[in-house]
């Protein structure tokens, strides 16, 4: 209770500050209390993200990556500190922070088209006409090249296709920030590579701000402008932020031998396996 009050007063002081970032994660703590036991998951997380940036969050499992994403999405609330999107505090989920869930989370009783249309109808009910909403749904299906399966149900398409639809649904909300929680984690390597390329292509075309959680070092280096590396929990925080200065568009095969790519990759690996190697108790 006291912590919430703190968070509120903090917000006001931050809002006064000039020259803020697009998305500001400001001194965020998160503790979970269950059955009298409190677990400190995140401690003093600070991160500012600019508009149009592609950020990856990487860390060992149990370090609170997903918790951080849930905090940004508003699905869980911060214990202390504040998350500000365009200077407004995030305290509830909303379509301006659309989430691509790890397991796609499509509604199985709706067709591919209806899954996206549900989001489009909800977000644009007041601003777009019926025809425009249909066109917008189809446009987003075409962004992920899934128009051909629009009348199929999620159970009738492959895992990669489901994740494409999940991405299309999130994009269709025209979010200020696109949040992705290990979006390709459940896919095979080839499908994953294709979807990574789709995401890169869409990001370069739409220029949206994106925060992605991953545990794949190559994926992080390939896609990101910056990689946020998290220390192991409990009480995890940001250990290091690595800027990836590779020119875009990036080609997977060309990068393999690029010294900058190799260096970035090595830096992340060193962080994960030398300085913050996986601790069993953190799992």
């Amino acid at each position: 209770m006291i912590a919430r009050v703190d968070a509120k007063s903090h917000t006001e002081s931050v809002t006064m500050r000039p020259g803020r970032a697009f998305l500001n994660i400001d001194h965020v703590d998160k503790t979970f209390a269950r059955g009298g036991v409190t677990t400190e998951v995140l401690k003093d997380v600070n991160l500012t993200i600019d508009k149009g940036e592609f950020i990856s969050i990487i860390g060992h499992s149990g370090c609170g990556k997903s918790t951080l994403l849930n905090l940004i999405s508003g699905l869980t609330n911060v214990t202390a500190g504040a998350i500000l999107l365009e200077d407004r505090e995030v305290n509830a989920p909303g379509p301006d922070r659309a989430v691509v869930f790890q397991n796609h989370s499509l509604l199985p009783w709706l067709t591919v088209y209806d899954n996206i249309k549900l989001a489009v109808d909800k977000v644009f009910s007041g601003t777009k006409s019926k025809v425009e909403r249909h066109d917008w749904t189809m446009h987003n299906l075409s962004l992920v090249q899934m128009e051909h399966a629009k009348d199929k149900r999620p159970s009738e398409i492959s895992g990669g296709m489901k994740q494409r639809v999940g991405i299309a649904r999130a994009l269709a909300m025209e979010p200020k920030v696109l949040l992705m929680d290990e979006p390709f984690g459940a896919l095979d390597a080839l499908t994953r590579a294709k979807l990574q390329e789709s995401v890169m292509e869409i990001h370069s075309r739409l220029g949206n701000t994106a925060v992605m959680i991953t545990h794949d070092v190559d994926e992080a280096v390939l896609l990101s402008d910056r990689i946020v590396m998290m220390t192991n929990g409990p009480a995890a925080c940001i250990g290091e932020i690595l800027k990836i200065d590779l020119p875009r568009p990036r080609q997977r095969l060309e990068l393999v031998s690029d010294p900058a790519y190799i260096a970035a990759r090595e830096a992340v690996l060193r962080f994960l396996y030398e300085r913050h190697s996986y601790v069993e108790s953190a799992a």
Binding site: S73, P93, F101, L107
Partner: peptide, 11 residues
């Protein structure tokens, strides 16, 4: 997951 989807969409 479905509840999360509903929450993000603000149903």
């Amino acid at each position: 997951d479905y509840r999360n989807v509903a929450a993000v969409l603000r149903l």
